[in-house]
Design a protein around this nucleic acid. Structure first.
Length: 969
RNA sequence: GCCCGAGUGGCGGAAUUGGUAUACGCGACGGACUUAAAAUCCGUUGGCCGUAAGGCCUUGUGGGUUCAAGUCCCACCUCGGGCACCA
């Protein structure tokens, strides 16, 4: 028999598919479309690694599955070829980026073709090609027209190694995303896209898309919406006012100082003469700090007093105004009302600089009060009694409930100390206590009391006592029945006490004050006292509005997208500076602004804050489009994320030089139906692409405002050592070697079989043998069936007889159709592959009982179905088998098989018999058996009898066609 | 610190709605074929006790709900990812 030779087969079909243009999508076709997109690669000079192979394999299985299901599938590919990696590679290898990019693309394309993907190479985009970046520039102009582009001098992230500005999204833990160099802050005039205008919609419209839940959450958190209140405070003796933003207006009565960011413009205006020197020094010092240093986790808080006082409008109290670098100028108003009692940062600062701490929120817990009952307010006091002789504390171990608590009781208007002493006496007998101090302020709790059939809204206070001597009075029997008094060692108190509010009180006592940051009941807050946080927030916001001092405000963490890069290898920003007319956009008709061909030595950035284009005199020098006078071009290039924010819009129109998006074809093909790529792009590319889509939608250039309807991520493939692949670790695996040895079919099937698609994991070359064996077995079976395709005597053929084996053959293939269809739709490729193996193993078993001579027609049919099912994973081998079976058209023009529910259903099923929840036997019964009959059958089993003799079946639970659980006593 | 996600054999992993835990594959062991090896084929393979029949235990740990828990609830531990002085 002819051996399976993947190299030969794959070479043959790659050529045939290319020649017949099988994967060139007719974009004008009326058929149902499916736009299947993969994130296009970065041809940086490395080979496409195994991770690309993973991503493309998964996406391609889905694309082929859709094609077989009758969709007109478009699976384009291109190259994200502008940018730092490509440029750095070129500089390092002393090749011009233009040349290196071209050769890298050539190599990448060769690799891509070897993967056996159905990419439509005829509609390729190359972002560094002027035919593409013309549209990058056009996009810039469109946003510019609508005021979504602006230029601002501001501190920006500067990578001292890449010598360029980076977007917020490109700074990872304070390091440059590309080269891991520590990023510093630099003041530069920069171009920004106003993505913050879209913050709300970018959050809201996440509801519209089918994306992995974790990615939706990640993007939401990145945008960081927060609801709060903004209000103004007077400054004593000055005209200026301080505007502040807070999400916790309910804590405002606890404000004991105000902090401004050091760079806040108000700082110098309000600083008093005596404090001027210190404030200025501090400002200079903090300006020098890099973003990283400023964000270091355990950095101690620092700050200085300005000498000014602000007035809390709620209680007209004067509070000192400080500056400190823990307040960020770019967020909110750059000014914070500091409430040390209820904010950890303010607390730390207040402790360090001895600022007062005032509680305005008391802990509160709603402990299942009943809505239908009255609520009574009660003041309650808890005594924490210390025995100084042995360092233990007086506690109660309750007999009537599972409480473990300190002595506690109502005050009934009595003095707190007196009431506490009385309670301790009644409950435990101890009568000589010395009052030490009160611990914290109130804690509230609302709960239902069964013995009085009412709710209590309790106000707990906590007093600390020391035991003077062990003298006791008699404890009433009634008390003794309820609880016993025990002395608990200090170290064990916190685990002993079970009552939540006493746990908090104990923590306060032992660890001293801490910031209580949860919601609760507002206290010490004048007319707002007694309200719960949620209510107080509403009423306080309303109060501010009425007084015209402020009101509700929503803030976002998201910053505008800085898009200028001081590097060579990118799309020039189409802007002209005219001395007379100022900043002028390049007119559309003059696009593209061609990237000048600089010699390699001039490509290298100098770090002057200006990019290499500034050295290209003939490029810089131009004329003003408005007045025709002498003018200069902008020399920054655009961030590559601008290039990739619209490439999916360009693919269908790639052959059109007049329009970025051809109307008809765009309307038909977009948005993207399925997008496959890494989760690392969630807060960058995917966010930018959504923003650009919405901006174009608002200009009525497209009629949809979400670009990617469905999104799936592939996991990361790690090196065989379990570490992230990197050249320096020497653990990079490239798919070429694997494909050369085993073929693309085996590679694709294996990499998808390794585990769940979204998980990834270490590349383990050992397991690939299993897939190789599987494909070989399939190949052999198919060829054997083929050999027996035409029986000598056609009369001998029994077609669909009732032979058990035939039924079994049909059953297994139909089961497999169902399973594989569902698994591919759900991106569960690993289990789909496993069911192929189950199916093949079953077929081989049947084969030994069902000779070909009798049923070759059925065998052929089954093998054809199996081939179609397998073809998305292993396109080459299945295409070859398909052809050998006498089909003239490609297998990918075939129809995906439908399964017959009736054929899947078993006639005899294996029923699990449990006795008291433990599996004791399995019995063969006919499908659809009733509970009664099942029980009867089960009780016949010898194994079951063993457990049931002399016992009564008290109950039974039945899961039809699965299980029966008999309860015997 | 906060927000996600995950812990299942020697390994990768499976288990639809709570219903036979360990499918499928790798590896390992035993056997067949072979002068031999590779390849291939057949068998065994969660742990413990037992000659066996069989029994007991087992999905990170500890509790709970249930006739029944990998799956649901509570607490904790470990790992991975994201955010991180965002007021």
């Amino acid at each position: 028999m002819e051996e399976y030779n993947p190299q030969k087969i794959e070479k043959k079909w790659a050529e045939v598919w290319d020649k017949t243009k099988l994967y060139q999508t007719d974009l004008k076709s009326k058929k149902n479309k499916h736009y299947n997109l993969v994130m296009f690669p970065y041809p940086s000079g490395e080979y496409l690694h195994i991770g690309h192979g993973y991503s493309f394999s998964g996406a391609d299985v889905y694309a082929r599955f859709k094609k077989l299901n009758g969709f007109n599938v478009f699976e384009p590919i291109g190259y994200d070829s502008f940018g730092l990696p490509a440029e750095n590679f070129a500089i390092k290898n002393k090749v011009h980026p233009k040349e290196s990019t071209a050769s890298n693309i050539k190599h990448a394309e060769k690799q891509l073709r070897s993967f056996g993907t159905m990419f439509d190479f005829s509609k390729e985009v190359v972002t560094s090609d002027s035919s593409y970046y013309k549209w990058t520039q056009w996009l810039f102009l469109k946003l510019y027209e609508k005021g979504l582009v602006y230029q601002k001098e501001s501190p920006v992230n500067w990578c001292p190694k890449c010598l360029t500005v980076l977007a917020n999204e490109q700074v990872i833990n304070g390091l440059c995303e590309r080269c891991d160099t520590q990023v510093v802050q630099k003041n530069l005039k920069q171009w920004f896209f106003k993505i913050t205008d879209y913050a709300e919609r970018l959050i809201k419209d996440l509801d519209k898309v089918d994306w992995p839940g974790s990615s939706v959450i990640k993007q939401r958190n990145w945008i960081g919406r927060s609801e709060g209140v903004e209000f103004e405070m007077d400054i004593v003796g000055q005209k200026e006012k301080i505007k502040t933003y807070t999400t916790r207006i309910d804590t405002v009565f606890g404000m004991t100082y105000v902090v401004l960011a050091p760079e806040h413009p108000l700082v110098l205006k309000i600083t008093s003469k005596e404090n001027k020197k210190a404030v200025e020094d501090y400002q200079i010092k903090s300006q020098k700090l890099s973003e990283v240093d400023r964000q270091l986790e355990d950095r101690e808080k620092t700050g200085v007093f300005t000498g000014a006082y602000a007035v809390n409008p709620f209680n007209n109290k004067k509070v000192p105004v400080w500056i400190a670098d823990y307040v960020i100028y770019g967020y909110g108003t750059g000014a914070v009302m500091a409430v040390p009692a209820h904010d950890e940062r303010d607390f730390e600062f207040a402790k360090k600089y001895n600022l007062p701490i005032v509680e305005s929120i008391a802990p509160y817990m709603k402990d299942d009060p009943r809505d239908d009952k009255e609520t009574e307010k009660r003041d309650i006091v808890t005594a924490i009694v210390k025995n100084p002789k042995n360092n233990s504390y007086l506690c109660l171990n309750w007999k009537t409930t599972d409480w473990k608590s300190f002595p506690t009781g109502g005050t009934d208007g009595e003095d707190l100390v007196k009431a506490a002493k009385r309670e301790v006496g009644e409950e435990t007998g101890y009568k000589n206590l010395k009052f030490i101090k009160q611990i914290g302020d109130s804690i509230f709790s609302e709960f239902y009391r069964p013995h009085k059939d009412s709710n209590v809204f309790a106000n707990f206070k906590y007093l600390l006592f020391e035991l003077e001597n062990e003298e006791k009075e008699v404890v009433a029997q009634k008390e003794k029945d309820q609880h016993e008094a025990v002395w608990v060692k200090e170290t064990e108190v916190s685990s002993f006490i079970s009552v939540w509010n006493q746990k908090i009180a104990w923590k306060r006592y032992k660890e001293g004050d801490f910031a209580y940051t949860d919601y609760g009941v507002v206290i010490n807050s004048g007319r707002f006292s007694g309200l719960k946080s949620e209510e107080a927030k509403e009423k306080m916001a309303k109060w501010l509005e009425d007084k015209k001092l402020g009101g509700k405000k929503i803030n976002y963490r998201l910053r505008d997208w800085s898009i200028g890069r001081q590097r060579y290898w990118g799309a020039p920003i189409p802007i002209i500076y005219c001395k007379k007319c100022g900043v002028q956009p390049v007119p559309e008709k003059d696009l593209p602004v061609l990237l000048p061909e600089l010699p390699l030595e001039k490509v290298q950035p100098k770090g002057t804050g200006k990019g290499p284009l500034a050295n290209a005199k003939e490029f810089v020098k131009t004329i003003c489009p408005k007045c025709g006078g002498e003018a200069e071009r902008e020399t920054d290039t655009m961030d590559t994320f601008v290039d990739s924010s619209f490439y999916f819009l360009r693919y269908p129109s790639v052959s059109n030089n007049k329009e970025m998006m051809e109307k008809e074809v765009t309307k038909k093909w977009l948005p993207v139906d399925m997008y496959v790529g890494g989760a690392e792009h969630v807060t960058m590319h995917l966010l930018y692409a959504r923003f650009i889509t919405k901006a174009l939608f608002d200009q009525k250039l497209i009629d949809f405002d979400e670009p990617f309807l469905r999104l799936r991520h592939q996991g990361m493939i790690l090196g065989p050592d379990g570490k992230k692949m990197s050249k320096s670790k020497g653990n990079v695996v490239i798919p070429d070697e694997v494909i050369k040895e085993y073929g693309a079919d085996t590679f694709r099937t294996y990499i998808l079989f390794m585990g769940p698609f979204e998980d990834g994991g270490p590349w383990d070359p050992k397991g690939i043998k299993g897939i190789q064996r599987f494909l070989e077995k399939y190949w052999e079976l198919a060829n054997e069936v083929l050999k027996n395709q035409k029986p000598e005597n056609p009369e001998e053929v029994i077609y669909y007889s009732k032979e058990i084996e035939e039924t079994a053959l049909l059953r297994i293939i139909h089961k497999t159709i169902k399973k594989v269809s569902e698994d591919i739709e759900g991106f569960r490729f690993n289990t789909a592959v496993s069911s192929f193996m189950v199916c093949l193993n079953e077929m081989l078993k049947i084969k030994s009982k069902l000779p070909f001579s009798k049923s070759s027609v059925l065998w052929k049919e089954v093998l054809e179905i199996f081939s179609i099912l397998l073809s998305p994973f292993a396109p080459f081998i299945t295409e070859e088998v398909w052809e050998r079976f006498g089909n003239h058209d490609s297998i990918f023009t075939a129809a995906w098989p439908k399964y017959d529910e009736g054929l899947i259903e078993e006639e005899v099923i294996t029923l699990v018999v449990q006795i008291n929840g433990k599996v004791r036997d399995t019995i063969e019964v006919s499908a659809g058996i009733s509970q009664k009959d099942a029980q009867k059958e089960a009780l016949k089993s010898q194994k079951v009898i063993k457990y049931t003799t002399g016992k009564k079946v008290a109950n039974s639970f039945f899961v039809p066609n699965k299980l029966i659980n008999l309860i015997v006593e």
